[in-house]
């Protein structure tokens, strides 16, 4: 298999773009882990996704880049933000104790293993690993998008359809699990979908509750108090 001419012609602008995009992705990834505030973490994740999208464009995978932004930045991280904002997880979390024991050591080990694997696979061909593509991505006169469409809807039709069936099953499963049949006379429950029952935690970055107050009282009384005081509304 011959090396794609675009790689051979990888000149200065190519390297500069790669360096900037790679730096953006790495800084974003570090930010996701190191930010104290979950919303900042989510934003850093968006930054990483954008950096990776630029790298995709650089590799001539335009469709992948667009889908990366539409699906991940546009839908998934927005959902993360929704959950963070609505369920009020945006208090500073206790990061001293891990939920799983030995989590950090294992994560570090896996990270190093992954990095070593990538370096071995790249085989010293910086910055664009040439032998990654299974075929020419650009036949003259046909765009990457058209070729991808051809491949997905002819050669790989079955895997494609199975994947879409899997997604539908996941959606239906989520709906079934979330909507347990209601009995008449059930207690009214706060519904996020209803849109107007929100706890005090939602309110903004510092969420009305200063961490020091919470530490001082050491209980969740503050929440309830604020809940009542700031959200009196006349129930019809």
């Amino acid at each position: 298999m011959s090396i794609h001419p675009a790689v051979l012609a990888a000149t200065i602008p190519d390297s500069i773009t790669f360096a900037i995009a790679a730096a953006i992705s790495v800084i974003g990834a570090l930010g996701v882990v190191l930010s104290r505030n979950p919303v900042h973490s989510a934003l850093m994740l968006v930054m990483t996704l954008f950096g990776v999208a630029v790298l995709f464009v650089e590799e001539n995978a335009q469709f992948l880049a667009a889908v990366q932004v539409i699906v991940y930045a546009g839908a998934i991280v927005v959902l993360f933000l929704f959950v963070i904002m609505l369920l009020g997880v945006d208090r500073r979390e206790v990061t001293e104790r891990d939920p799983l024991r030995g989590q950090r050591a294992v994560a570090l080990l896996l990270g190093i293993l992954g990095l070593v694997e990538v370096i071995l696979l790249a085989g010293g061909k910086w910055p664009t690993g040439a032998h990654s593509a299974a075929g020419a991505i650009n036949v003259t006169g046909r765009s990457n998008v058209a070729l991808l469409g051809d491949a997905v809807f002819t050669t790989y039709l079955l895997p494609f359809e199975i994947t879409s069936a899997l997604l539908v099953i996941a959606v239906i499963g989520a709906v079934v699990l979330a909507r347990r049949p209601r009995q008449a006379g059930d207690r009214e429950q706060p519904q996020i979908g209803g849109g107007d029952i929100i706890t005090a935690d939602v309110l903004g970055p510092d969420s009305l509750i200063r961490p020091e107050i919470e530490e001082a009282t050491g209980s969740s009384d503050v929440h309830e108090e604020l809940d009542k005081s700031s959200f009196e509304r006349s129930d019809p």
Binding site: A66, V69, A73, G74
Partner: peptide, 13 residues
């Protein structure tokens, strides 16, 4: 080349 997909991407941004 991704043309109008960029519209969808940007409107989701």
């Amino acid at each position: 080349p991704m043309g109008i997909l960029l519209l969808l991407a940007l409107s989701s941004v």
